[in-house]
């Protein structure tokens, strides 16, 4: 029993390949984040469209550590290329740990467990727009230095209000659940007959 819990070469290859697919989708949305609204909504949108690679890892590697490795690879690639901040490292670490705990507690084969773990994992990307709220003072100091009028700063303050952050936080699990159901439907319809699942 103990032997089966260890991650073997095949498991690591599975994680590596599906992480590559996850990363490509993730990166596409990072680029789309050049559109301001998309950037704020990016964590939720990524959750909506990355359900398939995530669930494939959950299905194929029903062992502890798979999701943590997936998150670590994503973070390492982004971090080494300078596109990640330390904030996102922390959010990803928390998200991956919670996702692993959820899978362990609710069962590796449980769809509910995997969906919930996907929601936690998706919170990792929240670290991308989070510095706006975490370093709000620094941002506003910067804007004031640029010479923006006070009315403008007030409106911007509303745009970066805690309510917007709360909306994004609520949207992430909703999109994760939708993404997981969407992925389940596609996987069942297209791949179960082909024997891939």
């Amino acid at each position: 029993m103990e032997k089966n819990k260890k991650l073997y070469g095949k498991d690591l290859i599975t994680i590596g390949i599906y992480t590559a697919i996850y990363f490509v989708i993730n990166f596409a949305f990072m680029l789309a984040g050049m559109i301001p609204v998309m950037w704020i909504l990016m964590p939720a949108l990524i959750a909506l469209f990355t359900g398939i690679p995530y669930l494939m890892i959950c299905l194929k590697v029903q062992k502890t550590g798979a999701i943590f490795i997936m998150g670590a690879i994503t973070v390492l690639i982004y971090y080494a290329t300078g596109q990640f901040t330390t904030v996102i490292l922390v959010t990803f670490a928390i998200g991956c740990i919670l996702a692993e705990i959820t899978r362990k507690v609710l069962g590796y084969g449980s769809f509910k467990g995997n969906t919930l773990s996907f929601a936690f994992f998706s919170f990792g990307m929240l670290g991308s727009p989070l510095p706006i709220w975490l370093f709000k003072e620094s941002f506003f100091k910067h804007i004031a230095e640029v010479g923006m009028p006070p009315e403008y700063i007030n409106t911007l303050n509303q745009f970066t209000s805690p309510y917007v952050l709360a909306s994004v936080i609520i949207l992430i699990p909703i999109c994760s659940i939708l993404g997981a159901f969407f992925a389940k439907k596609i996987l069942k319809k297209r791949f179960s007959k082909a024997g891939i699942l």
Binding site: M34, P36, V37, W39, Y79, A80, T81, G82, Q83, T85, P131, I132, F139, H142, I143, M148, Y152, T155, L156, F159, T160
Partner: peptide
């Protein structure tokens, strides 16, 4: 437009030194 792009531009200014270092390093 100003509000939405202001946040992004400030973020871009902050991320550029890291991105250039990361690009050359990678």
């Amino acid at each position: 437009i100003a509000i939405s792009f202001a946040v992004l531009l400030i973020y871009a200014l902050k991320i550029l030194p890291i991105a250039l270092f990361g690009y050359v390093f990678a």
